[in-house]
């Protein structure tokens, strides 16, 4: 092996990055991941060339979307024929495939050309922190997330809360012990749960639902 070959290898080898998506905004992290998948962070970057690196993203189940996006935003699917389009709200999509939201956000940050899917094939996403050993062995670097992971109040032990420095003491009559959830939250019995109204007849077509359950024509579909 000559010096030039070694230099070539050091320049063009694909570096493997690890990305921990826990509590990260998928839009912001999608931008970072897309940049690395396309190789835009390298001095040898050129749009037509495949210079990108590989990314292993873990904990995609625990991403944090902004505002009310889990409920308000949706994946819009058009299925090429009239009245066949429907939306999947992101919370439902996340239930179906916990890696999909990060994938879509990353894909959204790449230019819509034919090379996009090849770059995206170098992104490996896993819903939890379990990664196959043959992939985790490749990793040599990590991408830093843009959001700091918050520490939730219910993660803390009562001792920690007691020891937290107080600037002053509230009067006793103003303090409500809101850590005791049972005071405020009531578990509903199944009878009390609101029933979902399933449409039958003319308007029960699948265009009126955001989910589609493929069945044979004569089978009765029951959705609660």
């Amino acid at each position: 092996m000559s010096f030039n070959k070694a230099k070539q290898l050091a320049t063009f080898s694909r570096v493997w990055y690890l990305f921990d998506a826990k509590w990260q905004c998928p839009h912001a992290s999608g931008e970072r991941i897309a940049r690395i998948l396309r190789g835009e962070h390298k001095p040898i970057y050129y749009p037509g060339e495949s210079t990108g690196d590989c990314v292993v993203a873990i904990n995609t189940r625990h991403i944090a979307l902004r505002n009310d996006a889990w409920r308000a935003e949706a994946l819009h699917i058009r299925r090429e024929y009239a009245k066949t389009r429907y939306d999947i709200p992101l919370f439902k999509l996340h239930e179906l495939d916990p890696t999909k939201v990060l994938h879509l956000c990353t894909m959204n940050c790449m230019p819509r050309d034919s090379g996009r899917r090849y770059d995206l094939a170098r992104l490996y996403t896993f819903p939890d922190d379990a990664v196959p050993s043959h992939l985790i062995r490749n990793v040599s670097d990590q991408i830093r997330g843009s959001r700091t992971t918050p520490q939730r109040l219910d993660d803390l032990t009562p001792d920690d809360i007691e020891k937290f420095p107080q600037m002053f003491k509230w009067p006793k009559e103003l303090v409500v012990d809101d850590l005791d959830r049972d005071k405020f939250v009531r578990v509903l019995s199944p009878e009390e749960l609101p029933k979902r109204h399933v449409m039958l007849g003319q308007r029960a077509g699948r265009q009126n639902y955001w989910f589609h359950v493929p069945t044979t024509r004569h089978e009765e579909v029951k959705i609660n």
Partner: peptide, 14 residues
């Protein structure tokens, strides 16, 4: 110093 893509085709050791 570092290694990347150890189990891939383009494995690199420095």
């Amino acid at each position: 110093i570092w290694a990347t893509g150890v189990s891939s085709v383009l494995s690199t050791y420095v």
